[in-house]
Each structure stands twice: as structure tokens, then as C-alpha cells.
Amino acid sequence: MRLLTHNMLASNIKGVTSGYPLRIEAHQSAAKEADFNADFLRNVFPKIDWPALVSAAKTLGYGDLPEEAEPSMLESDEFLRRFHHALLEVHVEEGALVCPETGRRFPVNKGIPNMLLHEDEV
């Protein structure tokens, strides 16, 4: 699971108000090379919750993202490389995503997050 996926996931348990961002419990993570595409990064930047990405990347041991980001930074190749690495190359393989409000753990197995709810959570 890339951090792009993590950035788009929220806990939707009944009664939870924000449920975002999910805390990452990584038992196994990996770095996998992905094709660099500056245009994609520029397109997707406005859709990314930056603080959530920074904190997720830190959890997985990647601390090279600036705490704050603004569109003008997308001109910088160095910034794009770091953004690319955090968003698309850092993976959670095994572990869980934890709801910040309830502590409910959504498992991640073989890199796939499972967001299914139990009947009493819907």
C-alpha cells in the first residue's frame, strides 16, 4: 500500500466524525521504485492532505518532506523527487491502519488495506 492510498483513506465507523488521518502501524514496510511523472505529481498535489503525508512518511522512516508545502514548490525538481518517493515508493506491506477516534484497527495484509466494517459499526 502506497502512502497515496493511505492519504485517501478515512475511518467511516458509525459515529466517527473525522476518522482522519489513520495512524499507521507498520510491521513490515518496503521501498519500491515507481516511474517518476512530474505532471502527475503536479496534478495530484492539490488533492493530497500534506500534513497526513508528512506524518505517514515519518512513521515509515522517511523524514525528508518539508512540514508545509505550497504549489510554487512544484517547480523544484528536488521537491518533486521527495514528494514522488513519499507518495508512490514507500509501501506498507503488513500492519494496520488505526482509527484516530476509536482505535479500531483496519488490517493491511500483503500490502492491501481492508476497510470493511463489522455489522455493528455501520
Partner: peptide, 8 residues
């Protein structure tokens, strides 16, 4: 993502 339609 394992999800009910688009839950999460």
C-alpha cells in the same frame, strides 16, 4: 482496497 463499494 478491500472495501464495501467505496467505504473508507
Amino acid at each position: 482496497i478491500v472495501s464495501d463499494i467505496a467505504s473508507g
